[in-house]
Amino acid sequence: MSETTSTAGPSAGPSAGPSAAPAGPGSAERAAAELDATIAGIEHRLAAWAADAGAALAAMSGKVTGTAVDKLIRPVVEELLQLPGGYAAGAGFIANAGLLGPERSYIAWWQGPDLEHVDALANFSPNSISRYVKAEWFRIPVETGQAHVTGPYVDFLCTDEYVLTFTHPVFTRPDGPVAGIVGIDVTVQRLERGAMPALRRIGGRATLANADGRAAVSAAPDIDAGDLISPDEQCAHYPVGRAFTVWSNAAGL
């Protein structure tokens, strides 16, 4: 399978996909700005949610219960999942150890239009935190106190799909420990539907890649989501959100 990507390398680049040639000066820039607005929109929504959730948890002044967390989180998840044209496949909150009990986490996470409750059995476990501490989407925002995007990766815990997970730490005090994380799962499939038209306007081999140089969505038929890719030497780079880049002309490794 490796041959299919290497033979169609950079030399096949700009000429591939004649129908996808840039439509005019500035058109690629506008298309890239559109993609950036989509991803940054998800990130801003998440940051606002984290701030609201932190304030509400702080107001509970140490008496945080699972029921109270559900009540706080579920309406936001409902709004996110049922938003027409929205990107969220699943969303929720996961408590860090300490918020509800020493080794205890708490997951308030729902997925799909019918708001299926995810991993809820773990909430009956006294050591549920062990389930999340190693996961990149939990560990990094908790360790760094910064927002993070994980993936694309196969999500075994929730969706069983190929997804991106956007997570943001939640603070109850500005200088305090991380109380938990809020997050939004976006399936690569959903992202592909949203991003393909703009990528095609940027170029026949335009590709949205994560910080590791892995393709999330590509206009090139021989680059699949999950492939490691590299930008062509002369190609344009457009930042998309905090962690992604669009390369106007990419090739498989």
């Binding site: 196969v154 075994f156 799909e161 190929y162 999950g226």
Partner: peptide, 11 residues
């Protein structure tokens, strides 16, 4: 399966 990044094969 996770490194292969195929949801179907993983399931």
């Amino acid at each position: 399966a996770a490194i292969a990044r195929s949801a179907r094969l993983a399931r």
